[in-house]
Amino acid sequence: METRRDFIKKSSILSLAGAVQPASAINLLQTKQQTKPKTHWADGFRLVVSVSMQFEAGGQPDNAESPFPQNMQKGFIDLPAATWFAYGYKEGIPRMLDNWDKLGIKVTSHMVGTAVLKNPQLAKEIVQRGHEAAAHGMNWATEYTMSYDEEKKFIKDGIDAIKKVTGFDAIGYNANWLRRGENTLKILQELGFIYHIDDLSRDEPFIIKVNDKDFAVVPYTLRCNDIMLIEGKNFSADQFVNQVKMEFDQLYAESEYKRRQMSISFHDRIGGSPQMVKAASEIIKYIQQQPGVAFKRKDEIARMALADKTTIRE
């Protein structure tokens, strides 16, 4: 009869035998790791970072959502809140533009049509400094409730305002709070757009079919987004820095064998504050220390995705 001591002794020997793998098995494992296919971007970079600069201030309706309590009585205008938005075009965007120049990166600016018309020189300066002008609707209207014709006019009015002021043909789109309607993508394809960003489902661009044609999706972010982490949840700038750095570290590790895109989003009246511009500078300098990383505008990313046969298709 086998004693408990004999059983433990036998089990230990079997476990040790299982732990010692033959040299052939080890070599096979190492070969598999070494031959794991790399999926770098077509231009050789292993990770692409996309920065958004939302140009919305000046285009908001009266009593728009702000950090102030939403308790204004009907018939009155929230004047302090209006000054919070005005900070975006008076201080925020000019400060961010100088920072992007210092850091040597180009960004995508999603522009609300009425904001562009109210501050044409600022909109023009964004494009003149080499940044992309993307469309963000004509105003802050709720887009998903519009009829097909109403929405098409709404989107076209926005891109016409951008074209008139900046001379830039917008080919990328962002709906208010990402809430597009059932007809939005069809309309965008008809109007000559090549991508939209109202999608959070991946950490890399992908291609879908719209009107039987290829259309790029360049994913957006709510995680690395100042409106969620600073204005929305009262996080501090240093928490934002740490969270975005952690996001980058993980995506960079994955990017060795998987195509990765990181998105960071700033809004004129939030990301343009002194503390957040300092935070952005620290984040971007940290990212720039790593080899194989490129900062690209979203129109560049969309064109690369559409031209690359290995891009994911859905």
Rank of each mutant, 00 (worst) to 15 (best):
K10L: 08
L117P: 02
Q30P: 00
K285I: 00
K186F: 06
D226Y: 10
A19D: 10
L97H: 04
I194E: 05
E150D: 14
I227V: 12
R46L: 07
D43M: 10
M262P: 04
M1H: 13
I230H: 07
Y286Q: 00
Q275L: 14
D62S: 07
G272T: 06
L122C: 09
E247H: 12
L185A: 09
Q70G: 13
P61E: 11
K74D: 15
V241I: 14
G232Q: 01
V241S: 04
Q73D: 12
L200F: 15
R260C: 13
E143L: 07
M53H: 01
P37W: 05
Q70W: 09
Y144Q: 13
A135T: 02
A135C: 14
V116L: 03
N139K: 09
D78H: 14
G130A: 07
K233A: 08
Q239P: 00
I159G: 00
D98F: 02
Y252Q: 05
A135P: 02
T114M: 09
S281M: 03
E91C: 12
L185E: 10
E231S: 12
Q289S: 13
E56M: 03
E282S: 09
M111K: 01
E2W: 14
Y195R: 06
A279G: 03
R180S: 06
I26D: 08
M262C: 06
I194M: 11
A25K: 15
A294W: 04
K36L: 15
P80Q: 09
M111A: 06
I187V: 07
A280D: 03
R313C: 03
T31C: 05
L222T: 11
L79R: 09
R260Y: 01
K74C: 07
C224Y: 02
A141R: 15
D249G: 07
S263G: 13
E65C: 07
K36F: 13
Q243M: 13
A64G: 08
N71C: 13
Q239Y: 12
A141H: 14
